[in-house]
Design a protein around this nucleic acid. Structure first.
Lengths: 221, 221
DNA sequence: GTCTATATTAGGATAGAC
DNA sequence: GTCTATCCTAATATAGAC
C-alpha cells in the first residue's frame, strides 16, 4: 500500500539495503529540524548520502515526500494514545499510560511536536490526512467510540462520587496539553526558566513523577 | 528605539499615515499564516498595498522583517503574563488572570501560538531575542524574580495546608500548557473532536469556565 | 518615498548517460 | 537504480527613474 505508489522496482543492480527508506529517514530528520517550507531537497539528499535526483525518482516531488513524512510522524504519535483511551483500562490507568507514552516518545523526538503543529497550521489539508491515520478510513465510525467510552467511564465515576464532572473532550485536551506542550515550547521554556538542555531534561524527569498525581487531583470532586 | 534602525526619514512627499507600519502589519499577518520560511515578500507587499521594493527600503531583508515581526509577537504575548505572575496577587487570582488573558488574546489571534512555536523550533537564535523582550536587557536580574515570588507564595500555602507542594516551574508550565496548547493544536483538535470552527469556539468557551477550577483542584492537598 | 525594471541566486524538477 | 548535467521558475534583492 505504501510500496505500490513508488516507481516500479526493476531487477537492476541494487546497491544496498533500501534506498527509499534511507531517503525517507533523511527527509524525516530534515523536515522536522527545518520545517517543511524551510527544508531543502539538497540537504535531504546529503543527509541520505544520495543524489538529489534520486529523491524525485522515488517520491516525484517535494510535496509528496513531505506528505510521506507527515504520515509517518502522525502514525508514530497518535494511534498509541488513541488506543489507550479507547481501551478497557480504568481512567487512572489511562492517564498514567498516556503520560508514560508521550513523555517517553517525545523525549526521544524533540522536534516532533513543533513540526506537527507548524505543519498543521500551515497546511489545512494535512488535517484530513491525520484523521484517516488515527481513526482509519471511516472516521465517523470510530471517532465517537473514543469519546463515548470516556464519557461512560466519567459518568460512572461521577455517580460514584469519585470524580468531578468533565466533558470527555476537555479531559483529553487537558491531558495531551500537559504532555505535549512543554516539548513544543521547549526553546521558550529553556530560555524562560533559564536552563540548558540538561536542565530541561531534569524538568521533564520531574514531570514524569508529578504529572499523573497532578492530573488526578484535578479530577477529584 | 525601534524607529532608529529604519532608514532616515527624509522630508519628501509622504503619501499617507505610516507606510512602515502598514508593511509591518502585513508582514505580521502573512508570516503568521504561512510561517516565516513559507511566506513570500510579494505576498506581504500585496497585503500592504505597496511595492515589493519598499519592503527592502524599510527593512533591508526578509530576515530583518521576520525579526521585527517576531519581536512584536513576543511582546504581545508574554509580558502581560510575566507581569501577572510576578505581581502581588494571590495565586488564585494569578491563575484566573492568566487564563483570562491567554484565552482572550489567543481567541483573537489563532495563528499566534503555532507561529511562535515553529519560529522558535527552527531558529534557535530567536530564543535569545525572546528573553530580552520578556525580561529586559538584564534577564539574570529579573528572571529569578518571577519564580522566587511564586515559590514564596507556594511555600506559604503549603505550610498553611491549603496547597500541595509543586515546583514553581512546573506550576507555570502546567498553567500555560493548558492555556496555549489547544490553540497551537487547533487544527488537530478540530479534526479529532470532529468539530468545525464554531464547534471549536464552543470548546474554548467551555474552557473559559472550567479551566480555573480544574487547575485549582489540582493544587489542593 | 515610491515605483518599474532588472539582476542574481536558489531551489525544485527533468533528461539522458551509465 | 544511480549519477551528472541542465533546465526553469520563483523569489530575494538592487539600480535607477520619478
Amino acid at each position: 500500500m505504501t510500496k505500490s505508489k513508488t516507481p516500479p522496482k526493476s531487477l537492476s543492480p541494487e546497491k544496498d539495503g533500501d534506498t527509499e527508506q534511507k531517503i525517507l529517514d533523511a527527509a524525516h530528520a530534515v523536515f522536522l529540524r527545518q520545517g517543511t517550507a524551510g527544508a531543502r531537497m539538497q540537504e535531504i539528499a546529503d543527509e541520505a548520502g544520495v543524489n538529489k535526483a534520486l529523491l524525485h525518482y522515488y517520491f516525484r516531488s517535494k510535496d509528496r515526500l513531505a506528505e510521506a513524512v507527515f504520515r509517518k510522524v502522525a502514525v508514530q504519535l497518535l494511534p498509541p494514545v488513541a488506543m489507550v483511551l479507547a481501551s478497557g483500562m480504568t481512567l487512572e490507568e489511562k492517564v498514567a499510560r498516556v503520560v508514560e507514552i508521550e513523555l517517553g516518545e517525545l523525549s526521544r523526538s524533540p522536534f516532533l511536536p513543533g513540526y506537527l503543529i507548524s505543519e498543521l497550521n500551515h497546511n489545512p489539508e494535512r488535517a484530513h490526512q491525520l484523521v484517516t491515520v488515527v481513526l482509519g478510513e471511516r472516521p465517523e465510525n470510530l471517532r465517537p467510540k473514543v469519546f463515548e467510552v470516556l464519557r461512560g467511564q466519567i459518568e460512572d465515576a461521577v455517580r460514584a462520587g469519585r470524580m468531578v464532572a468533565i466533558e470527555p473532550e476537555q479531559f483529553v485536551i487537558n491531558l495531551i496539553s500537559l504532555c505535549i506542550f512543554p516539548f513544543a515550547a521547549r526553546p521558550m521554556i529553556k530560555v524562560i526558566a533559564g536552563v540548558d538542555e540538561a536542565g530541561f531534561a531534569v524538568i521533564i524527569a520531574r514531570r514524569r513523577e508529578e504529572l499523573v498525581p497532578f492530573f488526578l487531583r484535578a479530577l477529584r470532586p
